[in-house]
Design a protein around this nucleic acid. Structure first.
Length: 436
RNA sequence: GACCCGUUCGUCUAACGGUUAGGACUCCAGAUUUUCAUUCUGGCAAUAGGGGUUCGAUUCCCCUACGGGUUGCCA
């Protein structure tokens, strides 16, 4: 029997990283075993469903590269894939339970009668867990059909997994206590249950539960913050799973190759933005130069900087220096525009060098007098000017960098000199020197 | 409260019952780059506490503490 997994989000909010990781693990497991990955939308809560949320799920999955085989836009033999369109199936199975006497009416709603016995699940991640259903106070019969005729999550979830022939249910640990209920439902329905794997939840950096509004919670925010999809996929895979090797940077295909449920952890993991940014940098480094330039373009344009002929060459200079695409505008703005800000800390550092003011002024004059202007010639001249004043070349490099870019970091100084040109270099050196 | 799951450096994690408890992020220090970033080297830093079992426990068992989850006519 071939593997069939599913991701079954409800469209009541944006796509959450926890949900994304659940989707990822289901995707990885299905791909790893040559199986089928189903996307089913659990839109039974009419009051809270929104079209925006539906779109956020689809676009988030697309962005991450988690393509599904059955569901929205793909069709499949087990549709429809929206629960709101599957009422006949639920009615049919419900009728069967009623004939078997497994449900009873209560205030217009219908409750499922649990068998009063211990129920043991064999979770692929958590191992054996037993819940004792003889304790009725702790496990009251659950409503599966509301008084308005609609069905609740537990019932539709089970019926759909059954009808869609799902073999492995990989979901968040918040569902662990639901599983014996679902097992009882499968048994009453006369069908074998799928195998379950409950994966630990993702927590905030401070250990609290990650939910709406928390930093890093919404997948849709990642592209805006300068993350690229392969990095986000890689990072969330590392939360609760490890390759058991010392490698950490993987593409989606490499993850498929190495993934196994046995290697999934049992304890919740905290989300670390620092490491996420580092992983992003590692993936940025793997990006082809042209791809980096394209990916950074929107950020530069949004910052109000001119994306002109100079842009590709300018962007290339910082390709290997940044963690996030959102850092690009600040890193290259001074090359595309004359309006750039001075970093107070960098300026202060230059002020600490008493000779800087005169050296920069002298360099401005020497630059102006240079017979030929080139990056190499200009760079060489920095050394000459420093030596003439009895200073070390290295001492002048930093002040020049600050004078030209306003910052302590950035592209190679030679590249800056070449791209800026003589006129601008001289003007910025003069202006900065006078401001000291 | 009850029930369930969990607990290794600050964080993510590795370690057939026998390792100087390993790696990564962050941080610090050096090297390299006449500047920046990369890179490299080194450093700081952990088995929650208490009992067992065992020749030997991060690993198995129990208790406590702490964290998380569940306890809906939400999903």
């Amino acid at each position: 029997m071939s593997v069939r997994t599913r991701f079954a989000p409800s469209p009541t909010g944006y796509l959450h990283v926890g949900g994304a990781r659940t989707a990822l693990f289901n995707y990885l497991f299905a791909r790893k075993h040559g199986g089928t990955f189903v996307l089913r939308v659990e839109d039974t809560d009419e009051a809270r469903n929104t079209q925006e949320a539906r779109d956020a799920i689809f676009s988030g999955m697309h962005w991450l590269g988690l393509d599904w085989d059955e569901g929205e836009g793909k069709g499949g033999d087990f549709g429809p894939y929206n629960q709101s369109e599957r009422k006949e199936n639920y009615d049919r199975w419900f009728e069967m339970l009623r004939e078997k006497g497994r449900v009873y009416e209560d205030d217009g709603a219908w409750r499922f009668r649990f068998e009063r016995k211990p129920v043991t699940m064999h979770d692929l991640v958590c191992g054996e867990v037993t819940i004792d259903y003889r304790d009725e106070s702790n496990t009251p019969d659950m409503v599966i059909r509301r008084s308005d005729g609609s069905y609740v999550f537990h019932f539709v979830n089970v019926v759909d997994d059954l009808d869609m022939q799902i073999t492995h249910v990989i979901r968040g640990e918040d569902h662990l206590m639901n599983t014996p209920k679902h097992l009882q439902l499968f048994e009453a329905l006369g069908a074998p249950a799928p195998l379950y794997a409950h994966i630990p939840l993702i927590l905030n950096p401070n250990g609290s539960k990650m939910s709406k509004r928390d930093v890093g919670a919404a997948v849709g925010d990642y592209p805006k913050q300068g993350f690229i999809a392969p990095a986000v996929v890689n990072f969330i895979a590392l939360l609760g799973w490890s390759s058991k090797s010392e490698d950490e940077i993987f593409t989606l295909d490499e993850l498929v190759d190495r993934f196994s449920l046995e290697a999934v952890n049992r304890s919740p993991a905290r989300f670390d933005p620092e490491k996420c940014a580092w992983v992003n940098q590692q993936h940025l480094l793997k990006l082809a130069p042209d791809a980096f330039i394209e990916a950074a373009k929107p950020f530069v344009a949004d910052a109000g900087l001119p994306v002109d002929d100079r842009y590709p060459a300018v962007a290339s200079l910082v390709r290997e220096k940044l963690r996030l695409l959102s850092e690009v505008p600040a890193a290259i703005g001074f090359l595309l525009s004359d309006a750039f800000e001075l970093d107070p800390e960098a300026v202060e550092k230059v002020r600490g060098n008493a000779a800087a003011k005169d050296l920069l002024a002298a360099l401005a004059n020497d630059f102006a007098a240079l017979p030929d202007w080139s990056a190499d010639a200009a760079k060489h001249q920095i050394g000459e000017t420093a030596k003439a004043a009895g200073a070390k070349p290295g001492q002048l490099m930093f002040p020049v960098r600050v004078a030209l870019s306003g910052k302590s970091g950035g592209p190679d100084l030679g590249d800056i000199l070449g791209l800026l040109g003589r006129e601008k270099c001289v003007a910025r050196l003069k202006a900065f020197s006078e401001s000291l």
